Amino acid sequence: MSDISTQLIHHPYKPPAGFDAVNPAVQKSSTVIFPTVAALRQRDWKHKTGYTYGLHGTPTTFTLEERIATLEGGQFCTLVPSGLAALALVDMALLRAGDEVLIPDNAYGPNKTFAQHELAGWGVSFRYYDPMQPADLAAKLSGKTRLVWLEAPGSITLEFPDLPALVAVVQAHRDVHPQGIVTALDNTWGAGIAFNAFALGADISVQALTKYPSGGADVLMGSVVTRDEALHHLVHFCHMRVGYGVAGNDAELVLRGLGSMTLRYAAQDSATRTLAAWLQQQPQIEAVLHPALAGSPGHATWQRDCTAAACLLSIVFKAGYPQAQVDRFCDSLQLFRLGYSWAGPMSLCVPYDVPAIRTTPWPFQGGLVRFSIGLEAVADLQADLANALAAMQYS
């Protein structure tokens, strides 16, 4: 090797083994090198016993998968580039033309639009059910149903369903279903902390690791966790075929966030409950939606099944305030910034037109605003809300 370019690529030095640190090393690779042809042919990535190609895992991604599986109380984890990718992966792995999927009417919007466009185009039918009425789910299950999505609480409106009751409905139908039915839970809100998805009966638990596990509002990632190896293989082999992969540096950010996750969850939970109770006293507001508040839809179920609540709350203004005033309220906020996502350090808000995004009846006439409570001082956030409530009177 006389040429420096060759020497730099094939340099013989290898650092000594045994380096250990608080944070795992970051391994970034597409190509994995094999010592022999026999090793290349025999290497198995399916059970995390070896490495074959970057898409199939690195020491960094294997480490993150194992920790997310532990967080969720599961056994097997597959990482994907976003929370939405995790939802889509489950659909693609389990559904075929002629199958049907049932989705909560208050589910995360992109889960619904993926069914409306991609799944429908592939010959998979879908229907929405009222997650607060297990009887409605029971009435809509059919011989074509292959997958039932669950979400707790509902996106935007934060109703907390009776997950064991919904799972029991599916189980009763599954016993006579020729192919069986899988239940998959969007557990981003619970995050493996508020409740255990598998203890409540879910077959699959999906998270947007973008939210609480990351915590920094600077990385996109998702996970699919199961306890059943055969179900995991359906998901994991589909993951291989569609070419989903996550970057080593992104996995590093999520691994770093996991260490403070329970502390951040508890702090944001406490701050959110404080602000929710204060908002209930404000004369402009018709309702405050938060599972830990008495009177919020599904509160008794949350109280029975959960040990914590996340950073989300929604408020509904009284019907006398037109949308222009609601928008003025949002624009007047200084610490709460307008932006999607949640569970990061900065507080956020977004106004929503609820009747436009659901089919089940919505009992309120006023505008809704959803908040994500960040890590700012609660007194500062309360003062910001108070100032914005005052400002909306003058629109």
Rank of each mutant, 00 (worst) to 15 (best):
A115T: 06
G50A: 07
P81W: 10
L119H: 11
I103P: 05
P81V: 08
E66G: 00
C77W: 02
S82P: 15
D91Q: 15
L71R: 02
T63Y: 04
A86R: 06
V101H: 05
S82F: 14
P110N: 10
Y108A: 08
V90S: 13
G57H: 01
S82C: 12
L119I: 13
L89A: 13
P104A: 02
L102N: 09
L94H: 05
L119V: 14
F62V: 03
G73P: 08
Y108L: 09
Q116V: 06
L89E: 12
K112Y: 08
A88Q: 15
T52F: 10
C77S: 07
T63D: 09
G98W: 08
M92D: 15
A69R: 00
L95R: 11
G98S: 05
V90T: 14
L94M: 10
Y53F: 09
A97I: 05
P59M: 07
E72P: 04
G57C: 00
M92T: 14
T52S: 13
L64K: 03
L119N: 12
T49N: 05
I68W: 04
H56M: 11
A69E: 01
G73V: 03
L55F: 10
A86G: 15
R67H: 06
R96T: 12
C77G: 02
K112H: 08
A86S: 14
Q116E: 14
V80L: 12
G83V: 03
R96A: 10
F76S: 01
S82Y: 13
A120C: 03
L79Q: 02
V80S: 10
Q116L: 12
G83P: 11
A85V: 11
G54K: 00
T61I: 00
Y108E: 08
A97W: 08
V101R: 05
P104Y: 02
Y53V: 04
L95C: 13
L87Y: 09
